[in-house]
Every structure is written in structure tokens, then in C-alpha cells.
Design a protein around this nucleic acid. Structure first.
Lengths: 331, 331
DNA sequence: CTGAAAGCGCTAACAA
DNA sequence: TTGTTAGCGCTTTCAG
């Protein structure tokens, strides 16, 4: 093991000088600096970062809590996180929580045990025990994508309600009045907000809400497939279906076609997220594009600010209605 | 900061006893053990794992080098890695390398700087500098999925050649003789092996190889779309296309349909991987199913064995030909 | 600008 | 079974 002491000996200086040369080269004289650098090279010295971190009480690790990495939307968010973290000199500790709160709590505990400096939570749940931090102390966390209503930390989100409203309005403008909805998990604020936006649009258009047109889903293609099955089995299927994720929309389209309906001829289908496959589905999906990577980058920037003692404001990212071939005029 | 010393004082024992109580409770007497545990609770003591790791020279972190997390196949592999690591008490440091060797080298360097114990590399590249370890010393690495030919470490792979052969044979049995292929990145051993398997099948069936039927791709849907464009623009398009990934197959299907051909009526299409969307494409994709999560779990198990001084053998995981609606008899 | 020295919080000989 | 003690490799006062 070649450590700082060896380098110091080799350079004929003290360990303090070696440390200084590596951390703040400008405060050591050019002469010694060169000697030290040369010794570092000769010894093939790599600082033991475990010791550095231990000593300086910072790991530069960020824990990321993701509900399912298998969801392509989250995969993109993580790309963004990773990219930004890397640029700022942080590493990403990934936890695929599958929405399990015990997992989330356990990984958030890595901050308590000093294995990480902060956490980015992509789900609406606070993984820190109530007594972990004194009241008033900011949590070393940023909550992104699926956000708590009364988050105890800064958040990065979309205006889901308005986005859902805009998408529903698009459907209404095409002449649809019976619009089905395939929802996300029941207790998610995301689901609630998107349903609210859907209701807003119906109400503004003077269309009565038919609760039986709202089906539960869990964001997976399979759940979209199942939910669409309920819808097409009705005597009076809707002429359009709004799915709360592209993955569910893709599943729904398959089921609708299997039932003998054409998309968008008989039934229009819209999604949410704009994942890569959205434009490759048949027909290509009309959807709300979310800036997934930007969610990740923004969350990192804000978390670092929090870790440095700042208190960044809640942030709302823009969405965009992307109209493709899966929605058409009601015939 | 409540540290081990405080707990020791509170319990009226030495720090060593506290340490022992926490690490190997069975070697301390029940009486002291209870005293210590009580003090731990009262003090709300959480061991500083940074110190533990520093002292015991193990981080229990595993670096994972993934070419693109946005690829759903890799996302599944990572799920498997995460799950297995977690069970064994390891955490996952994720790096989305985008195939950049400098990134891979940098993150592999986390082992050198003791921020991680080992690396799982999912691409055919050795990220360690040649002189990092003495010749003969096993590298703290496992190479999975896309594997080096002369890997300097244990590997987990598929028999890509045979799998490709089996898939091609399926196409040949359906009567196809002009079979296009959309390949992966040129220099990848994966591409080479799958092309070899494709050639094996042709040769066994007495079909001459037509190199012009082989198109380059990069595993993304878009590249599949583009490559299929070349194929359908020919005077004599193939009657079947073998894509080296499902994502490319999904892109290819879209392009083929756009050109006015039906799938599988006019042109059969097959993929590779069996990602979740494979069964939701239209038509559902015939493909080679790879045990993605198993790749991850296996890689973790083997890496831990390596870290413990073992030398696990190279492992080959099973594949399965999954026949769905995208391939049919040549008409 | 440089060096000596005191730890960070914990583990692991070694003694008792 | 328990305590004493010497560090792990590094940073950071505090003197010089």
C-alpha cells in the first residue's frame, strides 16, 4: 500500500505538505509542489478516498430511490441524475425500491450512517424517520417526479393537473365526449392530480363525469392491457382513452385492437411521459412529454444546494403535448 | 455526534466491548450485551459506517458499468444486480457509461481509490489500466452480458452464437431463404457471435450468404428503423429480418409497415432479448429470451466470490426461443 | 510556506 | 469475557 507517508518520504517533505499539494496546490511553493507531484507519480500514489471521506466527513455519494428502474421513464431520469452527479463530482448509489417503504427507509439510512450525503427520492414518501432530524432542520433530500404534498424538502415536479387537462382538452376538441381513463396507483398524488385535470377539462366542456370510465392501473403495460379489457367489454365503450403512462397506453392499444377496434379509428388512445417507444408504437402515441433527464439533473443541482446549506425553492418543469397518430377525430 | 465512545461510557464498558456487541454479539456475556444494547438505544447510536469501512478496508460497494440504462434489457440486468447485492449487504454504485471508455476507467478507479470493492462491467472492455494489478492477480471484476474474448476475469454470458443460429433456423424452417440481419455495433463480440450463428444456420441449410443483407445498427429502435429502411428499399427485399435486439426489431417493424409491407405476411421480423415491450408490439415479437435479471444476480454472486479470494468459472446462462406473431411461413 | 502532532470513529491484536 | 492500546490514511490546527 502506497500511502501519503511514503510519498512524503520520497519527496522529502511532511505528509501535511503532500496533502496540501493535492488539495490546494496554490498554497505550496512551486518548488515543493513539483517535488511532491513527482513523488506522487513515481510512487503511483492514489489517495485512499475512504480515508479522505472519513476524515472530511463527506462521501460525495448520493442515494437515489427509484420505484422501478424497469420503467423507461425512470431510466431516463436516472441517466440525468447520473450525468449531473458525475459532473459535480458525486457518485450515485442506486436503489430499486419497488415502492417498498422498508427499502426506502433502509437506503435513506445510508445518510444517517454516513455512507452518503443525501437522497433523491422519486416517489411520494418520506423515508426518514420523524425523529431523525430536529424539527426545522432541512432534510438532506430532494423529492422529484412523484412528489409529496407537504414535502419536508425541496421538490421538482410537473404541473400534472394542467398537463392532464391539456391532454383531455385535446381529446375533447377531437369530438370525444366519452373518455375513459386508465389511472395510476390509487394513493399516488400523481394519479389524483391527473384525474383532477381530466375532471377539470370535462367540466369546462360541460361533460358529466362518468366514474365507471375510470379504471385502475399501475403504470405497467400489462395493467394497461387489463384495464383496456374492461373498457372494451362494455356495451358502450368510450371513444377515447387517456392513459396515465405510455407503458399502459401501449398495453391498452394492444387490447383494444384484439377486441376488434381500430386505433384511432374507433378509439383514440393517449399516453403520458413520451418514452422512446411512444413514437414506435402502432399507431405512434399522442402523449404528454416530460423532460425526464431534466428531472434528474435538476434534482441533483437542488440536492447539492441543500447539502451546502441552501434552501432551493420548489421547481416545476415544463411539459409538452405531443400529438401523434393514436388520437383522431371522433367519427 | 454520538459515537462509540459515548456509548461505552453510558454502558460503563470499553469501546471494544461495544464494537464486539455490535459485530459478534455471541462473544460477549448476555449481561454486558444487554447493558450495551440499552446504551445504544438510549444514545440513538448509529455506527459511522465511513469509519467502519475505513478501518476494515471494505466498502461493500459495487460499481456497475452499464452502457445505457435507457435500454430496457440493461435496466432489467441492473434490477437483478441491485436485488442480489442488497441481499448480500452490498450497495450498487451505478455508472451509465454510454460506452465511453474514459468513464469506465474513471469509475473502475473507484476500486483503486477504495470507494468500492469491485466492478461489474456489462460491456466488452477492460476498464483497469494494464499495470493496476500485478500479472496473475485476479482483477476485482466480473464481466457480464457483453463479454471480452480473453477476459481477465470471470464472465457471465449467453451462447450468442448458438442462440442466433437457433433463431435463424426457425426462420429457415418457415421457408425463408433471403434473411436480412440488423446487426449491433461493429466491434462488439456480441455482434460477431450472433452473425456467426446466423451464418452457421445458413450454411447448414445450404443457403449462400448475401453480405448485402447485413445492415449495421446500434441496438436502438431508431437504428432498427433506419436499417429496415435500407432493406425495404431494395428491389428484392428479404422475406425475413433478424434483429440483434428487440428495440431494433420494434423500430424495424414500424419502418417495414410504413413501406407498405405487412408483418409477418410479407416480411417476418425477429428480435433478441425479450424485453417487456416485445409481447406488446404489433405483431408480438418472436425473439430470444435472455434471463436479464439472472445475469445481474449471477454477476453479483461471482463478484463476491472473487472478492473473497475465489475464482469462479466462466458461466453461460440459458436462452429460450420465444415464438410469437412476428414470424410466419413464407408465402 | 512548511512541519509536528492531534485526532476522525472504529477495529483488532494483545493482555489481563 | 473484557479492557488497553495501537493504529487505519488522511486533514487540519497550531507553531515555527
Amino acid at each position: 500500500m502506497t500511502n501519503i507517508r511514503k510519498v512524503a518520504e520520497l519527496a522529502g517533505v511532511s505528509v501535511a505538505t503532500v496533502s496540501r499539494t493535492l488539495k490546494s496546490p496554490d498554497i505550496v511553493s512551486p518548488g515543493t509542489r513539483n517535488k511532491v507531484l513527482k513523488a506522487v507519480r513515481e510512487a503511483g500514489y492514489k489517495p485512499n478516498l475512504m480515508a479522505v471521506q472519513f476524515r472530511s466527513r463527506r462521501t460525495r455519494n448520493l442515494v437515489v430511490l427509484v420505484p422501478t428502474i424497469a420503467n423507461t421513464f425512470f431510466a431516463r431520469v436516472i441517466s440525468g441524475i447520473q450525468e449531473a452527479a458525475q459532473q459535480q463530482g458525486y457518485s450515485v448509489l442506486l436503489c430499486n425500491t419497488l415502492g417498498r417503504e422498508d427499502m426506502e427507509e433502509m437506503y435513506a439510512g445510508m445518510v444517517t450512517t454516513r455512507q452518503a450525503d443525501g437522497v433523491i427520492q422519486l416517489r411520494a414518501y418520506n423515508p426518514f424517520p420523524a425523529d431523525a432530524y430536529a424539527p426545522g432542520t432541512p432534510l438532506p433530500m430532494v423529492n422529484a417526479c412523484e412528489v409529496l404534498d407537504e414535502a419536508p424538502c425541496p421538490t421538482v415536479k410537473l404541473d400534472n393537473r394542467t398537463a392532464a387537462r391539456v391532454l383531455t382538452e385535446h381529446l375533447i376538441e377531437l369530438g370525444h365526449r366519452r373518455i375513459g381513463m386508465i389511472k395510476g396507483p390509487r394513493r399516488s398524488p400523481l394519479t389524483r392530480d391527473r384525474v383532477a385535470g381530466y375532471c377539470d377539462a370535462l367540466e369546462a366542456a360541460g361533460i358529466a363525469l362518468d366514474e365507471s370510465l375510470l379504471c385502475p392501473g399501475d403504470f405497467t403495460p400489462h395493467s394497461g392491457y387489463e384495464a383496456a379489457g374492461m373498457l372494451v367489454a362494455r356495451e358502450d365503450p368510450p371513444s377515447a382513452v387517456f392513459c396515465e403512462s405510455d407503458e399502459m397506453a401501449i398495453g391498452a392499444i394492444q387490447r383494444i385492437k384484439q377486441a376488434g377496434f381500430s386505433v384511432p379509428g374507433d378509439i383514440s388512445v393517449a399516453g403520458f411521459d413520451d418514452i422512446a417507444f411512444a413514437s414506435f408504437s402502432d399507431p405512434p402515441l399522442t402523449t404528454i412529454a416530460q423532460p425526464a433527464e431534466a428531472f434528474g439533473r435538476q434534482a441533483v443541482a437542488m440536492l447539492i444546494e441543500v447539502l451546502e446549506g441552501g434552501m432551493p425553492p420548489h421547481t416545476t418543469l415544463p411539459y409538452e403535448l405531443v400529438i401523434r397518430g393514436s388520437t383522431a377525430t371522433k367519427r
